[in-house]
Design a protein around this nucleic acid. Sequence first.
DNA 1: ATGGTGACTCGCG
DNA 2: GCGCGAGCCACCA
Length: 126
Amino acid sequence: MNASNFFVQVYQVTQRIPGGKVTSYGRIAQMLGRPHAARAVGYALSALKDAESGATYTSATVPWQRVVNSQGRISIVNREHTAVDQAHILREEGVAVDENGRIDLNLYLWEGLHLVDLDDILRGDG
DNA sequence: ATGGTGACTCGCG
DNA sequence: GCGCGAGCCACCA
C-alpha cells in the first residue's frame, strides 16, 4: 500500500465505526499498521472536505466525530465554529460526553475491525 | 529535497 | 489531573 492511500484507509476504517461507539486516532493508526501515525490520522480527518465539494470522502460521508484522542477526549474543543459540534453529534448518537468533552472509553470504545474487514481496506477493496 | 505544521501519544515532574 | 517536551507521520510550500 502506498502512502497516497493512507488518507483513504483512514476514512474507510472510520466509516466502519458503528454509531454510539468511538475510537482513537492512535487505534486507527495501529489498525493500519502504523502505530505511530496517530498525528497523520488526525491530519487526514482535518483534511475532509465539505459535503458540497462532491468529493468521495467528506465530513458528511465520514463519521469523523467518532474519533477522539487516546484519553477519550474530544481534541478539537474551542476550535473555531466546529467547536462544540462533535460533542453534540456524539450525544445524539447516544454517547455520553460531559461538559469537558470527556467520554468513558470503558463504555463506548469501539472493538475495532475484524481481520477480514481490515484486509479488504489494506488491499484497497474496501 | 527540506523545513514547517497539526483533530496525536507517551513519559515525566 | 495538568502542562511540557520529545518522538512520529503524512502533507504541502
